[in-house]
Design a protein around this nucleic acid. Structure first.
Lengths: 193, 193
DNA sequence: TTACTATTGGCATCTGGTATTAATATGTGA
DNA sequence: TCACATATTAATACCAGATGCCAATAGTAA
C-alpha cells in the first residue's frame, strides 16, 4: 500500500534518462512507468524542454540520415577549387556537426579520408580511376567547424598506375597526409566482371 | 497551358524514388510536387504499399537504433552486427546507388574505408578512440548493390595504442583490407586544444 | 487554518494520416 | 458518338499522440 512518491525533481531526472535510453516512449507509457498521470508527464517534458515522441523519432532519424547523405554527395567530397589534370588539385571541406562524434565534436577520420581520396581520384586524367591502396596518417584531431584544405599531387606515374600524395591542412597546420596508389582505367574495363 | 499529365505508372515510380531519396515528405508536399491531389498520392502509396510519413520516419530511426548502443547511437558507418569490445567486431554495409560513381556504378573507395575505419574505432573499449594512421588496400572494385561484410580484430595493444586489422569481404571474397592504428583517449583529453 | 506547490482532469485544437463512399474527369473501343 | 472503364478528386468520419489552457483537488510546511 505504501506507494512511494518520488520527488518531482528525481522523477524529472529519471524521465530524462529514460528518454535518452529509449526515445520511442509515448507519454502514456511514461505515465504508467512512473505511476503518475499523463498530464504530469507532459508538464515535466514542458519544464525540461523535452520534445514529443514524433519529434524525438524524427531527430534520431534525421541525424543518421544526414550523416549517410553527407558521404554520398557528388563525385568529389568537398569543394574542388583547382585541378590540373594529371598533375595536382586542391579542395576545401568545411566540416560540420554531423561529420563528428556527437560527444567529442571531433571529426570522424573517414571524412578526412574521403576528401583526400576523392581528390586523389579526381585529378587523374582518365575516364575512370580507382584507388588501389593508401598509406595515411592523421596528425591531429580535427574539430567540427574547422575548414580543411587538401592538396594533391601526382608524384609518379607508370602506365596506368599513379602515385598521388595528399596533404590536408587547417590554417597551414598539416593535419593529415596520405600516399595513394590510383589506377586509371579504360571504360568498361571492369564491367563484365 | 499544356499541362503535362504524367501517366499513373511513371508517377508512381517517381513517387517511390522520391521517397527513397527523402522519406520525410508529407502527402501534402508530395501532392504539390507531382501536381495532383492529396487523395491521388494516398491512393498511390496504398497501391505501392508505401507507409505514411510517421511510419517511414520511425523505420529510419529504428534501424539506427537497432545498432548496438554501446557507442552513442549511429556512430558507425554500416550496421554493427556484433562487437566484443577490445577484441573484435563485425559490420555490414549494403551499398547503394549514391555510394557509387554515376557512370560506372563502382562504389567509391571512401565508403569502404569509412565502414572499416568506423568499425576499427568502435571496437576499442574507451570513451573515445581516434584513428592515428592506416595502411589500406582495395583488392577489387565493388559494384553498387553488393553487400560488404567487414571483420575487425585487435591484434596488438600497447597502452592506449591499438593495432586493428580489418578485412572486408563480399561473399567470402576479400575486397579490402586495412591495418589501422587507433588511439584510445580519456574523456576531454583534446578538449582544451 | 492558510498558503503554496504539485498533481490531475477536462476540453478544444492540431497534424498527418486511414477508411470509405461518392462524384467527376478522361480515355478508349466498338 | 455513345458507353464503359479507369483515374482523379472530393467529402466525411475517425484515429494517435500530441499542445494549450483552465479548473479542481491533494499534499505539505508555516
Amino acid at each position: 500500500m505504501s506507494e512511494f512518491r518520488m520527488s518531482k525533481e528525481t522523477r524529472q531526472q529519471r524521465l530524462r534518462q529514460q528518454l535518452e535510453a529509449d526515445p520511442f516512449l509515448t507519454d502514456e507509457e511514461l505515465a504508467r512507468l512512473f505511476k503518475v498521470s499523463i498530464q504530469t508527464i507532459r508538464l515535466d517534458r514542458l519544464e525540461l524542454g523535452l520534445p514529443e515522441l514524433r519529434e524525438r523519432t524524427k531527430q534520431v532519424a534525421a541525424k543518421v540520415y544526414a550523416q549517410v547523405r553527407s558521404l554520398s554527395g557528388g563525385e568529389v567530397y568537398g569543394d574542388l577549387i583547382d585541378v590540373q589534370l594529371g598533375r595536382s588539385g586542391l579542395s576545401i571541406l568545411d566540416t560540420d556537426e554531423n561529420m563528428g562524434f556527437a560527444r567529442t565534436k571531433i571529426v570522424r577520420g573517414h571524412h578526412i579520408f574521403a576528401q583526400a581520396n576523392s581528390l586523389a581520384v579526381a585529378i587523374i586524367d582518365a575516364p575512370t580511376a580507382l584507388t588501389g591502396s593508401a598509406e595515411i596518417r592523421f596528425l591531429r584531431p580535427v574539430k567540427v567547424g574547422e575548414r580543411i584544405v587538401a592538396k594533391a599531387q601526382v608524384i609518379e606515374s607508370v602506365k596506368n598506375r599513379f602515385r598521388v600524395k595528399v596533404e590536408s591542412r587547417i590554417d597551414q597546420e598539416e593535419i593529415f597526409h596520405g600516399d595513394f596508389v590510383v589506377f586509371a582505367m579504360e571504360d568498361g574495363q571492369w564491367a563484365g566482371d
